[in-house]
Simulated assay, not measured.
Amino acid sequence: MSLRYAVLTLLDIEPGSGYDLKRRFERSVSHFWSASHQQMYRELHRLHDEGLLDCTEQPQAGKPDKKIYSLTDRGRQVLKEWVQRPAPAQKIREPFLVQLFAGHHLSREQARVAVQRQMDQHRALLATYLEQNEKVLKRDPQLQRRYWLAHQTLLLGIEAEKTWLAWGERVLRELDAQVEE
């Protein structure tokens, strides 16, 4: 997948400025796809140049005009065609797992600290996802139905974080058991 389809998807939900788009991206797609602020703006300009986005300027007092982007009919068609194509399963790319794979260079205590640090990060992500889920569940039922599949990506994120935490607990128990031997 490329950033272009993430941008098209977010603008299909609601038109917005580059800043609006970045904020929406950070609250949703960024949990499974990353992009910098600069990449986002470059992609907006590219999509606009390709005729997939419209751009209107909104005057602001004392500031440069705000550019509001929205999908063109062609942009909506490109998104529709892309979403109907099969997506390949993505392999995990997790630096921590590579480090753990070389974990024989760590003492048990160093390994324990490394696993605990990862678990802390995954606990924080889980808390964020659960908070977002509460917001989704408070939305208008019509919006919940329309974006039901989008909500499923959040629910998968919640399950993934729970799995990370359960796995980490098992690793910590095993490390503790090895110390006792």
Rank of each mutant, 00 (worst) to 15 (best):
S2V: 00
L3S: 00
L3P: 02
R4C: 00
Y5R: 02
Y5H: 06
A6I: 05
A6G: 07
L8A: 07
L8F: 03
L11H: 04
L11M: 04
L11C: 06
D12E: 15
P15D: 12
P15I: 04
G18H: 06
L21K: 04
R24E: 11
E26V: 00
S28K: 04
V29G: 02
F32H: 10
S34D: 15
S34I: 01
A35W: 07
H37F: 11
Q38T: 11
Q39V: 00
M40F: 04
Y41M: 07
R42S: 12
R42A: 02
R42F: 04
L44P: 04
H45T: 11
R46L: 04
H48I: 00
H48S: 08
H48M: 01
H48L: 04
E50F: 00
G51Q: 05
L52C: 02
L52A: 02
C55W: 01
T56Y: 11
T56W: 08
E57Q: 14
Q58D: 07
P59T: 03
Q60A: 13
A61K: 10
A61E: 14
G62A: 10
G62H: 13
K63W: 14
D65I: 00
K66E: 15
Y69K: 00
S70Y: 03
S70W: 06
T72Y: 00
D73V: 14
Q77S: 10
V78S: 01
K80A: 15
K80Y: 04
P88Q: 13
P88M: 11
Q90W: 03
K91P: 05
K91N: 12
R93G: 04
E94Q: 14
P95D: 03
Q99S: 07
L100R: 01
L100W: 08
F101S: 06
A102I: 02
A102P: 00
A102W: 06
H104F: 13
R108V: 15
A111S: 14
A111W: 10
A111Y: 08
R112A: 14
A114L: 15
A114R: 15
Q116C: 04
R117F: 13
M119D: 12
R123Y: 04
R123G: 08
A124K: 13
A124E: 11
L125M: 13
L125V: 06
T128C: 01
L130T: 15
N133M: 09
E134Y: 03
E134N: 10
K135F: 06
K135L: 12
L137G: 05
D140H: 10
P141S: 11
P141E: 13
P141F: 11
P141W: 12
Q142S: 10
Q142H: 03
L143I: 02
L143E: 14
R145A: 12
R145H: 11
Y147C: 02
H151K: 07
Q152Y: 03
L154P: 05
L154M: 14
L155A: 08
E159M: 06
T163S: 15
W164Y: 13
W167A: 14
G168L: 09
E169I: 09
E169V: 10
R170F: 04
V171M: 02
L172T: 05
R173G: 12
A177I: 01
A177G: 13
Q178K: 09
E180L: 13
